[in-house]
Structures are given as C-alpha cells and as structure tokens.
C-alpha cells in the first residue's frame, strides 16, 4: 500500500477519472479506486471528502441528490463538469512530464 504523501497531488485526478465513466457517489468511488489499484491505494475518508469539497468549489464537479430506491436513503452524487474535464486533461499532461522527469533519476541498482 503506497503512502498518501506520494500521491497527494493526484487524488483529484483519481476522483475525476472515476467520474469520467458517469456520475457516482462517495463510497462507490473509493471502492472502485481500491479495486482498480488492487488495494495498493486506499483513499482515506477525509481525503475523499475534502477532495470533493475542493473540486466542487473550483467548479470541476457538481453534486446532486439522488434517492436510493431500495433503501430509501438519499445520497449525494457527483458528476464531472466541462471545466473539470479540462482540468483532468491538464493534470494528465502534467503527470506525463512529471513521470518523464522523475524517470530520469530512477535506475536499477
């Protein structure tokens, strides 16, 4: 399991990626991240919800309520916005460059 320090700058990107496929809610997103990374990265609750707050404030995602039919429970769903999509592309570019740069300093010993 990787430390949350290393990935900090990309938590938002991870969440935006999960929303590319369609709207989702908090637990589902964190569960999918866990499965996708084969449990190598588990996003903490506080990380997840502070990211939602930040992304929504910046207008990258928007939230809406949806009633869950089976349980009668109201959930907050999130969907990505066009600025969010732009931001996601930006972050992808940034990561490519970052990866290239860091890779310059990585070698097998």
């Amino acid at each position: 399991m990787i430390s949350s320090d290393v990935i900090r700058g990309y938590n938002d990107t991870l969440i935006l990626y999960m929303l590319l496929e369609g709207e989702s809610y908090g637990y589902e997103i964190s569960k999918n991240i866990r499965q996708l990374t084969e449990e190598k990265y588990v996003m903490k609750e506080t990380t997840l919800y502070s990211a939602f707050t930040r992304l929504e404030k910046n207008g990258y995602i928007e939230s809406f309520y949806l009633d869950e039919n089976s349980l009668g429970k109201r959930r907050t769903y999130y969907r990505i916005t066009p600025p969010g999509l732009d931001y996601y592309r930006e972050k992808c570019e940034e990561w490519k460059v970052t990866q290239e740069v860091v890779n310059l300093f990585i070698r097998e010993l």
Binding site: K31, E45, Y49
Partner: peptide
C-alpha cells in the same frame, strides 16, 4: 453537511 456526507460514506463501507 460534510459530517453527514462522511457518515453516509462510512455507513456504506
């Protein structure tokens, strides 16, 4: 609001 969100997420889990 945030507390409710967290609670809901933790309940799901």
């Amino acid at each position: 609001h945030l507390k409710q969100e967290l609670l809901s997420g933790m309940e799901d889990k």
